[in-house]
């Protein structure tokens, strides 16, 4: 599959993850979110930006429990609860937020 943003078409795999992370842009993130039926709010961006920083530092998308632990450390426990994250990303924070952030599918089965 593919996404189009700012007049550019960007390739994604069959599950919707970007093939090349370097092709990500904020506009594209909005398009991916639309496909995921998510309306991006500042709270969504906080998680997406956090994931991009994590990837930049470690070159992987974190497993969900690693994500929540890292978010607790940086943004506080209330923003790391499963309830909070699932409200933002109903089909799985790791999977959906990673997809919007342009990251590959998270490493780890949970």
């Amino acid at each position: 599959m593919a996404y189009t943003a700012d007049g550019k078409t960007v390739e994604a795999d069959e599950e919707g993850y970007l093939v090349n992370i370097n092709e990500w842009s904020e506009g594209l993130a909005g398009e991916i979110a639309k496909a995921e039926q998510i309306n991006m709010t500042p709270e969504h961006w906080e998680v997406v930006n956090f994931l991009r920083e994590y990837y930049n530092e470690y070159q992987i998308a974190p497993a969900i429990r690693v994500l929540t632990k890292a978010i607790t450390k940086k943004l506080g426990a209330d923003k790391a609860s499963n309830k909070y994250l699932y409200e933002l990303f109903p089909y799985g924070p790791a999977k959906q937020a990673c997809k919007i952030a342009g990251l590959p599918k998270p490493t780890g089965c949970v």
Binding site: E57, Y58, Q59, I60, P62, A63, V66, K69, A70
Partner: peptide
């Protein structure tokens, strides 16, 4: 190739 050496630093978080 992808430099995956940074990922060893993520192990602590796991």
């Amino acid at each position: 190739m992808k430099n995956f050496s940074k990922t060893y630093r993520a192990l602590e978080g796991y």
